[in-house]
Design a protein around this nucleic acid. Sequence first.
DNA 1: CTGCACCTTGTAGTCACTACAGAGTCAAGC
DNA 2: GCTTGACTCTGTAGTGACTACAAGGTGCAG
Lengths: 139, 139
Amino acid sequence: MPDSRSGRYSIGALAEATDTKVETVRYYERVGLLPKPGRTTGNYRAYTGDHLARLSFIRRARDLGFTLDQIRALLGLADHKDNDCCTVDAMARDHLGDIDRKISDLKALRRELNDLLGQCQRGTIADCRIIGALSPVAK
Amino acid sequence: MPDSRSGRYSIGALAEATDTKVETVRYYERVGLLPKPGRTTGNYRAYTGDHLARLSFIRRARDLGFTLDQIRALLGLADHKDNDCCTVDAMARDHLGDIDRKISDLKALRRELNDLLGQCQRGTIADCRIIGALSPVAK
DNA sequence: CTGCACCTTGTAGTCACTACAGAGTCAAGC
DNA sequence: GCTTGACTCTGTAGTGACTACAAGGTGCAG
């Protein structure tokens, strides 16, 4: 929770409010995703509500699987409120395509691994079908 | 293709045969997944059929999404042919569970992103639903 | 003998963090 | 005022699984 007098957050408070590790908050600052906050007399970072908003955006987008580069782009777009939002839409659409590809890859993988598992006869490694299926044709 | 006289492969030939980059083959050697091969007079690596078999195993397991640590374990098990294969089975089963979790996570993500996309009105960023959905409640 | 493809080692970069070490700050309790 | 403990600071290095590059050596065809 923010210091009631100044409305400012310590790094720990900001981290907790956004379910982020303190180190990660500093990391976002280092790579330029989160603007450098002011400092207290003791050189502690003092964040504002704007920082909280921005960090929440970043975390939410990360949860949705956007990369930090994509988020940088989204933040850039979000800062120009009079642009039209087709670019944002296109980015989300691209991302959706990526996710669809990943899902179908994983499903194929699942099928294959499951087939392998169905063949386990609980014998010795020498006739283990899983090891066999992973091994090359013959050597 | 192997040198016809010795049945040995250069690193490039091994890489090509297993659809692996040369650097990756050297990387597997460095991290102890692939045994160090013999060398030619000119200090080139000279691989045998055993190396080819082992690298094929590694690549196939990687394709199936096993981590290098898991592959290390599988290779260790595969080397003791009289062990029973329940351990292998359990590893594959665990891995299948991981994959199922990933698939359902991605599906949830997909739903969420798709809902967001359905709301695009092609207006300005100021009323973009995607940006809005990513942004925190109010600041 | 010249060119070129291939190989060698070593090092550093990628992504998105995460984990430390060693020091400083701050507030509460005694 | 002093101690304790939680918090914060900077800087550096580690993770996984590669990937890229530099600067040099090797091997072979023309």
